[in-house]
Design a protein around this nucleic acid. Structure first.
Lengths: 196, 196
DNA sequence: GGCTTATGAAACGGTACCGTATCATAGCGA
DNA sequence: TCGCTATGATACGGTACCGTTTCATAAGCC
């Protein structure tokens, strides 16, 4: 009984199908967008039968949410042993690189569209953006305490001011934020190292 | 001949239809999004025959581009006679208010999605965001020259840093930027008035 | 009032995708 | 080798929208 269940989950065919489908779904979101996303396109792209998708996901929305969830398993770069400013720069640069990379950032507009129409995606979007903002906020506070930054009126606002331009440029302009400007961005918002 | 042409353009029925349709199209973009946008929905919403839309616009894309074009006739608030800082604050607050207002900002995600897939919309997006950025950039430069702002390394970057968080909050978080924080935002990026 | 023309309604064939069902196949575990 | 089961292919009826055409109506113009 319980062995049968375990077998069912362990069946490599299932794992393989899921992986292919989720990857294809993410690509499809990038190319077609949220509104034009279709199950049949995903099936074709994944080289999988349409029925296989319906066996694993009830809904188009559930599949999309799952695809984003898996995509955001990206590990943030390690920042142990760094000063607050170094850590902040490394994290922000990582964000800039991801948002700049066409492959990684292609599904972002679809996420924004989806979050506008579906509560589940809205919750996902909030969860992940909040996570990132909290990390930055505490790094900023730490840097202020360590005298590395000019003290901003509001660390949370500062975090948004750092993240904002990166996404703004990707979504509202024709040219994404250059990761090499990460340092200048931080300096503009939080000032130079103590000797300024 | 030429009178006939003039008459054709002046026919109030045409003007009325166009207005109804463009307004409905913008609403539809806000509610359905770019990918799920359909001509028939627009026709129904506008209380207009489907054929009337096809008579005036070749394409779904052309109609959408037209709708955005008309929507962005919003006049920016007057800033004559103000200091650079006052002008900057008024303009930025206006942006924040528009982006915060659900009615006005609803079509923005659709614009982003559309710009991702259609060159015409990409061009429109670029044109309007660039216009706004140039205004802010020159205001910042002026304010620096007048000693109202701490001199930023790059006025263009500063403009993006000011605009970024407003759009970031609207598009990536659950709560839009509070227009009342406009002053704090400016201070964080450009410093206080000279007496600081 | 008479002519012109934009309009709304309706029907059209065509296409795409939905979500379901059936079935033969082949990969899997024991 | 032998059951089990996930799979891909295929077909299904149903729906939605496409873009076009036809036609009677009514609003505009002189």
């Amino acid at each position: 009984m319980s062995r049968a269940r375990a077998d069912r989950r362990a069946d490599p065919r299932i794992k393989r199908s899921r992986q292919l489908i989720l990857r294809a779904a993410l690509q499809e979101l990038g190319e077609a967008g949220y509104g034009a996303f279709t199950i049949e396109s995903v099936a074709a792209r994944a080289g999988v039968g349409k029925s296989t998708i319906y066996r694993h996901w009830r809904d188009k929305v559930v599949l999309i949410a799952d695809a984003f969830e898996v995509a955001h398993q990206h590990a943030a770069p390690p920042v142990a042993g760094l000063t607050a400013r170094q850590a902040l720069e490394r994290l922000l640069r990582h964000v800039a690189e991801v948002v700049t990379d066409p492959a990684f950032s292609a599904p972002i507009p679809a996420l924004i569209e989806g979050a506008e129409r579906d509560p589940q995606l809205r919750e996902f979007r909030h969860r992940y953006s909040e996570l990132r903002r909290q990390t930055l906020t505490s790094l900023i506070s730490q840097g202020v305490a360590d005298g590395e930054f000019r003290a901003p009126a509001d660390p949370e606002l500062a975090a948004q001011v750092l993240l904002g331009p990166i996404f703004y440029q990707r979504l509202l302009t024709s040219e994404p934020f250059d990761p090499d400007r990460t340092g200048a961005l931080i300096t503009m918002v939080l000032g130079n190292s103590p000797d300024q």
